[in-house]
Design a protein around this nucleic acid. Sequence first.
DNA 1: CTATAATCCTATCGGTTTACTAGGTTTTAA
DNA 2: TTAAAACCTAGTAAACCGATAGGATTATAG
Lengths: 137, 137
Amino acid sequence: MLSKKTKYGIKALTYIARKDENFPVQASEISESENISQKFLESIMLQLRKSGFLGSKKGKGGGYYLIKKPSEIKMTAVIRVLEGPIAMVPCVSLNYYEKCDDCPDEDACSVHKLMIQVRDASLNVLGENTLADIAFR
Amino acid sequence: MLSKKTKYGIKALTYIARKDENFPVQASEISESENISQKFLESIMLQLRKSGFLGSKKGKGGGYYLIKKPSEIKMTAVIRVLEGPIAMVPCVSLNYYEKCDDCPDEDACSVHKLMIQVRDASLNVLGENTLADIAFR
DNA sequence: CTATAATCCTATCGGTTTACTAGGTTTTAA
DNA sequence: TTAAAACCTAGTAAACCGATAGGATTATAG
C-alpha cells in the first residue's frame, strides 16, 4: 500500500506543476485545495525540498516551486524518496537490497523469482512516467 | 512491502508443491525446512485451508496438501487472500475498491492515473504466474 | 484404551510504523 | 513593525505486524 505521505507528495507536486506560474505556491493553498492536513503536508514539502525536487522561499509571498521541469521528474525518483524501495521484498530491491534471514539460496526461492518480475513491471511503469505525464496527460 | 505472512504462505505452498507426494505435509516440517516460526506458520496454513488452497488432515500422520494442481493456482489469488489488495491504493483496487476521502474527482487525480498503470502491470505478472511456474521453472 | 502427534482456535503482546498534532523559531515582504 | 510564510523538533494515538502462549480437538498407532 502506498502511504498517504507519498500520495500527498505526488498530489502536491502535481498541483505545483499544473499551476506553472512564476511565483511560488504556498503549502496552505495546496493543503486546502487538495484536502491535506497542513502540518503534515509541510513536513512532506520539506522532504521534497531536501531531496532536490522543490525549492522554497520563506516569508510573506513565499512558498514552493519546482526545480526541474515536470518532464524531467521521474516517478521512480519521487517514490523512492517518499516511500522507499519500489520492490515488494528487500531481497529484490535494486536500491535498498537486503538479504533475507530465512532463505539460504535466493535462486531457489519462489518468492524471489516472482517478486523480481513484479519489481521489473513496476519499475517499467514508474520509470516511464514523469510528473508531466501524470499531471497533463 | 510484502508481509511475512504472504511470503511464508507462498513458500509453504511451494514446498508442498515440490514435494508432490501422496501423503500430507506437516507444518512442523515446513517450518523447520524454511526457517519459519512454527506457530506463525500454523495460522497461515489455516488461512490457506479456509480459503480453499489447502486441505488438511488432523491427527498423527496428518498435515496439509494442495487441493488444486499447482498450474491451476494463480498468484493473484494467493496474494489477494494473504496480503489483500494488489493495488497500491484502494481507489484503483478491483477487488477492494474504496473511494478516497480527499479527491473529489478520480479522473483528475494524478496518483490515480499512475497507480492504475502500476496495478495493471502487477496484475499482469501475478496473473500469468501460477504456483507451478514459480515452484518448478 | 491410551499415548502421541497433528491441526485448530483464541487471546495476547511488544515493537514498529503511520498519520497527524503541537508549539514553536526563523525569515521575508509589505 | 506586523504578518505570513517556511522551517524545526517533539510527541502521540491508533493501527498493524510478527510472534508467542496455551490450550482444545481430532486421528492414528500400539
